[in-house]
Amino acid sequence: MTSGDLQLRRAEKTDADEIFALAREFAVTFRPERAPFDAALPQLLENEDAFLIVATVEGTVRGYLLGFTHLTLFANGRVAWVEEAMIESGYRRHGIGRRLLEEFETWARSRQAGYVALATRRAAEFYGALGYEVSATYYRKMLRPKM
C-alpha cells in the first residue's frame, strides 16, 4: 500500500456494510448486531457532536474512527473522546490509525476541545508514539434491563 492509495473522508450510509464488518472485528465484550447498528448509523452521521470518518484503500473501507466532543465543567469547555477506532487487521502498521487520529484531532481543535481522550487496553505503544499518555483508570458497569 502506498500513501497515495489511502483516502480519508466522512462516513456515509453506503459504508454501512464495511463499517459493520470492522466493528464486529474488534468487539470483545459486545457482539454488534445489525439492527441496532443500522438504527445508530444515521443518527451518528447527523449528530454535529459526532465525527465518523473512514479510511479507504482503493475504494474499500479499511478503517474507521468514531469520536465525539462534549462540554465539561472541569476542563473549562469541550473535550473530545475517541469511542471507537478500528483498522482491518491486514492494514495495520501502514499509518492508517495515525492518519485517522490526526484527522480527529484536527476536528476536535476546530470544535475548541481542550484535549482528546480514549479508553483502551490495546495498542499502548501506538498511542504513546502519537503523544498520548496514561491518565486515568477506566471503570464501567454493565446495565442490564430490570426484570
Score class of each variant (00 low, 15 high):
Lys146Phe: 05
Glu102Ser: 13
Ala117Tyr: 01
Leu143Ser: 05
Thr137Trp: 10
Arg109His: 06
Pro32Trp: 07
Tyr139Lys: 03
Pro36Val: 07
Leu143Phe: 15
His94Asn: 05
Gln7Phe: 01
Gln7His: 10
Asn76Val: 01
Asn47Phe: 14
Gly131Ile: 03
Ile53Asp: 05
Met142Gln: 13
Glu46Ala: 15
Arg144His: 12
Gly63Asn: 04
Ala113Pro: 06
Arg34Phe: 10
Ala119Ser: 11
Thr60Pro: 00
Tyr132Met: 06
Pro42Lys: 12
Ala85Ser: 08
Ser135Asn: 11
Leu44Ser: 08
Tyr115Arg: 09
Arg109Val: 10
Phe104Ala: 10
Arg99Glu: 14
Ile53Cys: 15
Ala21Asn: 05
Arg93Cys: 07
Trp107Asp: 09
Ala16Ser: 15
Thr60Tyr: 01
Phe104Gln: 06
Tyr115Ile: 04
Lys146Asn: 08
Met1Val: 04
Leu6Trp: 10
Met142Leu: 14
Ser110Cys: 09
Tyr139Gly: 03
Glu25Gly: 02
Arg99Lys: 15
Ser89His: 13
Val54Ser: 06
Ala117Gly: 08
Arg92Asn: 05
Met86Gln: 10
Ala113Lys: 04
Pro32Glu: 02
Thr2Leu: 11
Arg98Pro: 00
Glu102Lys: 06
Ala27Asp: 06
Arg10Gln: 14
Gly63Ala: 15
Arg109Cys: 13
Arg144Tyr: 12
Phe30Asp: 11
Asp49Cys: 07
Val54Gly: 04
Leu6Phe: 12
Asp49His: 11
Thr137Tyr: 12
Val116Phe: 11
Ile87His: 02
Thr29Gln: 12
Asn76Gly: 15
Arg62Ile: 00
Gln7Gly: 00
Ala113Thr: 08
Ala113Met: 03
Gly90Lys: 06
Leu143Ala: 04
Gly95Trp: 02
Arg140Ser: 07
Val134Lys: 04
Ala85Glu: 13
Arg31Ala: 12
Gln7Ala: 05
